[in-house]
């Protein structure tokens, strides 16, 4: 009943329809693929780049930022300083939960404006409890509220960092000054580090960040606050584009109560050393063995 010619005709029609469907279905994929540049796809890892290649990439990134966001920015790749190992401490007795630090981070680090992203989350905790289960991050009232204390959490720059361990491509590592960084040009976006971090310190770029040109912080670092591409992970870097120049992190400068202390752990005269030696200090989730460089203390 099915003659060979009819069978062939059916196959030809089917094949043509199939090819058409394939071309249609693949369109967004082709559109995505054609926007990729060969140079970018084949670019080597941060640690394998020569100084010349790096400066070329920096200029390219500046040009891209100009083209895409309409802003003139300056991107640098500042190396860690000799004899410097950063540490950060936060005084829970004086933190009032105003979230100025989170806001400053948002502005300084060129975060996506739509999501109001920040590397800092502030937990409102019940007096008499260390249980984060009872903490709130989305409180919306005058602070400090009675019966509450506040605990800002950001990247702890762990010396035994689970995020660094799990990364399958070495896209994240610990720098000699203690800061855990991400090469945004090398990250494959698997988000294993996000699953591994016990402090909710990592963020993924679920879309390309949106920032109006006049709000872009033009003073940028390759490993820190340059505008991140979509599909990669990012994190707090203790503002290394500032701190490696001897400035303080943006969150510290924004704090109205002076709750934050930042400095060089190797300098015996530093304020951070004084705090660690004289205050009652603890680290978050110490039992996990992550060895944070971010400390909490009380004024007693």
């Amino acid at each position: 009943m099915s003659s060979p010619t009819r069978r062939v005709a059916l196959k030809v029609v089917g094949g043509t329809l199939g090819a058409g469907a394939f071309a249609y279905a693949a369109r967004p994929f082709v559109q995505w693929a054609s926007a990729l540049s060969v140079d970018e796809v084949l670019r080597r890892h941060y640690k394998e780049l020569t100084p010349d290649e790096m400066s070329q990439i920096l200029r390219q990134l500046e040009a891209d930022t100009k083209a895409r966001y309409g802003a003139d920015v300056h991107i640098e790749d500042l190396p860690p300083q000799e004899g410097v190992s950063f540490g950060y401490a936060l005084n829970l007795s004086v933190c009032i939960g105003c979230r100025k630090c989170a806001e400053a981070c948002h502005v300084e680090n060129n975060h996506d404006r739509r999501t109001n992203n920040s590397y800092i989350r502030v937990l409102e905790m019940d007096q008499g409890s260390f249980d984060m289960e009872r903490g709130q991050v989305d409180y919306d009232h005058a602070v400090p509220a009675p019966g509450k204390y506040y605990m800002p959490v950001q990247c702890h720059q762990c010396d035994n960092a689970p995020c660094v361990k799990v990364c399958p491509v070495e896209a994240t590592w610990k720098e000699p000054d203690g800061v855990v960084v991400v090469d945004y040009n090398w990250c494959i976006g698997c988000r294993y580090c996000e699953a591994a971090c016990p402090y909710h310190a990592r963020r993924f770029n679920w879309q390309a960040p949106e920032i109006p040109a006049d709000q872009i912080n033009p003073d940028q670092g390759y490993l820190s606050n340059r505008i991140r591409p979509k599909g990669v992970v990012e994190k707090c870097t203790f503002c290394l584009h500032r701190t490696r120049r001897g400035q303080l992190p943006a969150c510290l400068e924004a704090c109205p109560t002076g709750a934050r202390v930042f400095g060089n752990l190797l300098d015996p005269d530093s304020e951070i050393r004084w705090v660690l030696e004289h205050k009652r200090v603890y680290v978050l989730k110490e039992e996990l063995g992550t060895r944070p460089r971010f400390f909490y203390f009380f004024d007693v």
Binding site: V166, P168, A171, I188, G189, Y192, V232
Partner: peptide
């Protein structure tokens, strides 16, 4: 399909990319 950057898939190839083995369980 779970990768944010499948264009960088080669980064995870042993010997070609930077294969974080034996530390990373994903490697």
């Amino acid at each position: 399909v779970d990768m944010g950057r499948p264009d960088r898939l080669w980064h995870i190839l042993p010997g070609i990319g930077r294969f974080h083995w034996p530390v990373s369980m994903l490697a």
